[in-house]
Amino acid sequence: MYTMRQWSARHARGLKHSYEWLERSLVKLYPYFQRMGLSKVEQPLMKFVEQPTKRFLFDSQSCGQCTLGSTGMSCPMNCPKTIRNGPCGGVRANGKCEVKPEMDCVWVVAWQGTQQLRTEQQALHILQPALDWRLKGKSAWLRAAEQRIREMKS
């Protein structure tokens, strides 16, 4: 839903905070999930919570490698060229997408939405690696929690 996506981009700052809160909670819950078996938790979590929420708020395409926190809540997978390091050179003078003229370029939205972030937090300044397509449809939240725990340990 494009309207909802636009709303989310406008409220990126607040949403980023709730997002970070969610990540912290997941880190706390992670040991329980582990005990229950991650593979058992991942599917329902994805199907009933993560996917519907992200879909509703951001039109998320569930690539499994979420960058929303560094793109001002603009899901780059809505770029018709699925460019992870945008914007491409085709952006129209009015900021609309080359491929879908009725849509704002997701990377222009991301640029505007991340101005208040520090440079090293902005996706537009960080080289995003090539996507791992095996993770499509998998839970990005669990992966983020996993990574956070790994970082805390090291």
Binding site: P87, G89, G95, C105, L124
Partner: peptide, 19 residues
């Protein structure tokens, strides 16, 4: 690589070159 200094967001384009 290619660069387009003539497309928005104009203030980002030099950073894109750096990237």
């Amino acid at each position: 690589g290619a660069a387009n200094p003539f497309a928005p967001p104009y203030d980002y384009r030099p950073y894109r070159l750096a990237k």
